[in-house]
């Protein structure tokens, strides 16, 4: 009897170990594969601006593109998410609230390729026409598309953060004669701020990692725009670069190592952001 139990425990422990190895293995693989190029180029890899396969590899345009596109998405999402979260959490009835949450969950599940199609067929052309650009594949397009993609997630988590503020706060505020609006914005919102921060960070994490939708609309030009803040020029992000070039040299060579180094950078950035985000969410968790 005891042996059987022990054996069973080992099986479960083994399965858990497999799970842990997946997480750790990813990380180690990325490091292992990036090693050659980092040894070769060192810091120049991250600061270099030119990426010519076979000659030199510089990651700066990709890093810049990823950062800008994500920042843009964040900027667009934040006010909207806040506004709608306040409304859902404080002004909506329970049934309507459930309905909207359900809609958000469905939206969050829309595959990236569908967004990619929407981006190519509509967003790209709209941005081109509205801003009179030469071509609609720009950082701005990618930023907008990502904003729409992460909106459901950021919104739903922000709303959760607001709901998590204890009822007492609301009761006291109303008891003091504050209007519902003042209560919502002056009392509940500040309390929920850490949670909302967490939501935004997690949304950023997701935006940084999105490949397919961005690859189709960002322009894939390995260059920092000129001037640097010109969001209406084509550029490149890390996932988009990986998506477009990985097939060329999978498995070996300097080119592959360079791509893996990009992947490593992306991995670390996303993990850090996610870690911070989860920390914020936990920080003020009141069940």
């Amino acid at each position: 009897m005891k042996n059987e139990s022990h054996g069973v425990m080992l099986v479960f422990a083994g399965l858990n170990l497999i799970f842990l190895c997946c997480a750790g293995g990813l990380f180690f693989f990325l490091i292992f594969e990036s090693y050659p190029i980092l040894k070769l180029h060192g810091f120049d890899f991250w600061l270099g601006q030119d990426w010519w396969v076979g000659e030199t590899y510089g990651a700066l345009p990709m890093l810049y593109g990823s950062t800008l596109v994500t920042a843009l998405a964040c900027l667009l999402v934040l006010p909207l998410a806040l506004a709608v979260a306040i409304f859902i959490s404080e002004f909506l009835t329970s049934t309507s609230r459930r309905f909207v949450k359900a809609v958000l969950e469905l939206l969050a599940g829309v595959p990236g390729i569908v967004y990619g199609l929407l981006g190519v067929s509509f967003l790209s052309l709209w941005i081109k026409d509205i801003f009179g650009l030469l071509d609609g594949n720009t950082l701005a397009t990618a930023g907008c598309l990502l904003a729409i993609m992460i909106l459901p997630t950021v919104l739903t988590l922000s709303e959760d953060a607001m709901r998590a503020v204890p009822a007492e706060y609301r009761e006291i505020a109303l008891g003091l004669g504050l209007s519902k609006w003042q209560m919502a914005t002056g009392v509940v919102l500040p309390q929920a701020l850490p949670g909302i921060m967490g939501a935004v960070l997690l949304g950023i994490g997701r935006a940084m990692g999105e490949t397919i939708a961005v690859m189709l609309v960002v322009g894939s030009l390995d260059r920092i725009p000129d001037p640097w803040f010109n969001i209406f020029s084509s550029a490149q992000t890390i996932p988009s670069k990986l998506g477009r070039e990985a097939a060329e040299s999978i498995g070996e060579g300097t080119h592959w190592s360079a791509l893996m180094a990009l992947g490593l950078m992306l991995f670390i950035m996303v993990l850090l952001i996610n870690f911070l985000g989860n920390r914020c969410l936990k920080g003020r968790s009141i069940s």
């Binding site: 799970f19 842990l20 997946c22 997480a23 750790g24 293995g25 990813l26 990380f27 693989f29 990325l30 594969e33 997690l202 994490g205 997701r206 940084m208 990692g209 999105e210 490949t211 996932p239 990986l242 998506g243 990985a246 999978i250 498995g251 791509l259 893996m260 992947g263 992306l266 991995f267 996303v270 993990l271 996610n274 870690f275 989860n278």
Partner: peptide, 21 residues
């Protein structure tokens, strides 16, 4: 933490490292 790592990882990395492995 491992669970969070797996959840947050950009899927293209799953594809590339996964194919390699």
């Amino acid at each position: 933490q491992s669970g969070q790592v797996l959840n947050a990882t950009p899927t293209i990395l799953f594809g590339l490292v996964g194919y390699l492995f």
